[in-house]
Amino acid sequence: MTLYSTTPMLNKAKKEGYGIVAFNVHSFDSIFWVVEGAAQLYSPVILQTTMGTVKSLGAKNIVEAATAASNYFDVPVGLHLDHCTDYELIKQCVRAGYTSVMIDASMHSFDENVTRTKEVVDLAKSLHVNIEAELGKVGGVEDDIVVDEKDAQKAVPEECVAFVEQTGVPTLAPAIGTAHGIYKGDPDIDFDRIQKIAEIVDVPLVLHGGSAVPDKDVRQCVSLGMAKVNVSTELKNAYSQAIADHFKEYPDQLDPRQYLQKAKDAAIEMVASKIKMVGSEGKLVKPFV
C-alpha cells in the first residue's frame, strides 16, 4: 500500500458529510499509534507534521514510517506537511513522498498569499499531491508560528472564492474563530461564516485549531462543510501526560516498554474519540481514486 493523496479522501468526506481527522505526530512511535487507532475503528486518517518535526526526524524517514504503518495496519493514510512557510522544505517533502502540503502565506497580503500559494500549486498538483492554504489568520501557536489573538482575522467569504479561483488550491483552511493550542476560554466559532464559505466554495474546507473544541461544535463544523479537522495539542498532551504520570507513580521504572505502552494507550484513546467525533468510523473504503 502506498500513501494516499488527501484530495480524493477529503472530496469523498465532503460529499458524504463526514470529516477526516489530521493528527499531528512528533515521533515515529506516535505515527504507529495514530494509525493503529484508526485501524481499530476502520477509519481513514491523515498524519501531519510541522516544519520542526520534519527537521527533527527527516522527511524521508517520516514517509517510510508512515508507509510502514499504513501497510502494517492496512489503513489508507495521507501524509501532510502542516503550516509550512518554507518553499524549499515543501519541495523536499514532495520529493520525499508526502501526499499533501500546506503553504501558509496567510501573514501576507491577499495578493502575495495568492502568488505564493499558486507557486506551490504549480509545483505539486500535477504530482497528485494535495495543497492546502490558509485565508485569514488563525490565532495561537503552531510550532514556531505565533499569531496573537488581537492579530487573528476571520476569512471573508467572497475572498475565499476569489482565492480558490486564482490559485486553483484544492483544499482551503479559512480562519473562522478557532485557535491553535488549548483555549483559555470558550472558542468563538463563526458557524454562519463557515456555512457561507461552504456554500460558495467548491473545495473541501479545513478546521484548524481542533484541539479542545467541544465535540458538538466540531460536528456542526463538519456538517457545514469542514472535511478535515486538525488535532495536535490534545493528542500530544495526552500521551505526554501518560508518561509523566508513569514516572510520578513509578520513578524507578525506566523500561521504555512500560511507559511507552501507557503513552500508546492514551494516544489510541484520544484518536478513537476524535474519529468518532467527526463520523469517519467505518469509512475505510479503498481505493479513494
Rank of each mutant, 00 (worst) to 15 (best):
D29G: 01
F23L: 08
F191I: 01
D144C: 09
P8K: 12
Y239P: 00
A266K: 04
A105V: 09
N11D: 03
H128Q: 02
Y18P: 04
Q40T: 13
T85Q: 13
L3W: 07
V138G: 01
S240Y: 15
T178I: 06
E159L: 08
V169Y: 01
T233H: 06
S223Q: 09
I90S: 11
A96V: 10
Q92E: 11
D144V: 14
I20L: 07
A124F: 03
L10Y: 01
A179I: 05
G282D: 08
D122H: 07
R95V: 05
T115R: 15
V75C: 06
E234S: 15
M9H: 06
H80T: 06
H80R: 12
D215I: 08
D29M: 08
S223G: 14
E199N: 15
D29T: 07
T171A: 10
I268C: 05
G181Q: 15
Q166K: 15
D82V: 08
Y4W: 14
V271Q: 00
M51Y: 09
C84Y: 03
K262Y: 09
Y239A: 01
F110N: 07
Q220N: 08
N130F: 00
G78L: 08
M1Y: 09
S56C: 00
S106M: 00
H180P: 10
I103P: 02
I90W: 12
V147F: 11
K15P: 00
D217T: 07
V222F: 07
V63I: 07
M277A: 12
A38P: 01
P187S: 04
L205F: 07
I131M: 13
N11W: 12
Y239T: 01
S109P: 13
D255E: 06
V289M: 09
Y183G: 09
G168S: 13
G19F: 02
A38D: 03
D192G: 10
E112P: 10
V101A: 06
G279E: 04
P187R: 01
K283H: 03
I268H: 04
A244Y: 11
V169F: 07
F247Q: 12
V229Q: 05
N230L: 15
L47S: 01
A13N: 03
S223R: 12
D245A: 10
H83F: 08
V289Y: 14
V45M: 00
A68C: 10
T2S: 08
L260K: 02
L207N: 08
A242S: 04
D143H: 05
R219A: 04
N237P: 05
I62R: 09
L254T: 11
S43T: 09
I194H: 05
S27C: 10
G168L: 11
K196Y: 12
T99V: 03
L41Y: 13
E199A: 15
K14S: 03
D265E: 14
K184M: 05
K91E: 13
Q258C: 04
M270R: 11
Q258E: 10
E234W: 12
T99M: 02
K137P: 00
S27I: 11
Y98K: 00
I20C: 10
Q241C: 08
M9W: 03
N61T: 09
V222E: 03
D252P: 14
N71T: 12
L57A: 02
H26I: 11
V218P: 00
I189E: 00
A198R: 02
D217L: 14
S273W: 05
T53Y: 14
V222Q: 04
I31L: 10
S43F: 12
K55F: 01
K154T: 03
G279N: 14
S5Y: 09
T6R: 01
I194E: 08
